[in-house]
């Protein structure tokens, strides 16, 4: 069993890894296809990346022999969730370049967690990491929604915090409209 009820909690957790790794840009893509019955989540960061040994440790903390470095359980949780739902999991990392995580779920699988509170999660990421850019893309079949925080930050500059109530309301309704435009 994993600790999270929603896929958006996994997403938040993996993005947090990227932020800890010094990423400046996070590219998050969710692709849903009814045709192939898949839901694919891709999270790519430009953080400091990991060497082979570290990658092994974060993916499979139970079999690693090295215990001197502290590793979390977020990646194994995500991997397990995908594999339990007839899907697959892949992580690629290169030192100095960044890390990419891809989790694929069988979309109709009875145990597949819902995406959950995506808007709330994205709002937390956008407001909570004011110096990190996020490109978010959600595709459902032919429909496509993209939010690029670089455009938003370019307008806002550094003078107004993203947690300003009017800006929060704007971001919230932007995200809600975007998600609604995807239909179901």
């Amino acid at each position: 069993m994993t600790a999270f009820r929603e896929l958006s909690q996994h997403i938040l957790d993996i993005v947090e890894n990227g932020v800890s790794a010094g990423a400046k840009l996070i590219i998050l893509t969710i692709q849903e296809s009814i045709e192939t019955d898949t839901l694919q989540i891709t999270i790519k960061d430009d953080g400091k990346g990991m060497d082979k040994e570290m990658l092994q440790a974060v993916t499979d903390p139970w079999v690693t022999t090295r215990t001197t470095r502290k590793v979390g359980l977020g990646i194994p949780f995500f991997k397990q969730a995908a594999e339990m739902c007839g899907g697959s999991f892949d992580i690629q990392s290169e030192v100095g370049k960044g890390t990419q995580v891809v989790a694929i779920f069988q979309r109709s699988h009875i145990d597949r967690p819902p995406l959950g509170d995506l808007e709330g999660t994205l709002l937390c990421l956008i407001v909570g990491y004011p110096t990190i850019d996020l490109v978010y893309q959600h595709k459902v079949g032919e429909n496509d929604y993209v939010l690029d925080t670089r455009e938003i930050r370019q307008v806002l500059g550094d003078d107004v915090p993203l947690s300003d109530p009017e800006i929060l309301a704007f971001l919230r309704s932007t995200l809600e409209e975007g998600e609604q435009s995807l239909g179901d």
């Binding site: 600790a3 999270f4 909690q9 957790d13 947090e16 979390g72 949780f77 937390c124 909570g128």
Partner: peptide, 9 residues
């Protein structure tokens, strides 16, 4: 807000 794996869980 602390947003590690433990916090999110």
């Amino acid at each position: 807000v602390a947003m590690g794996t433990c916090g999110i869980a």
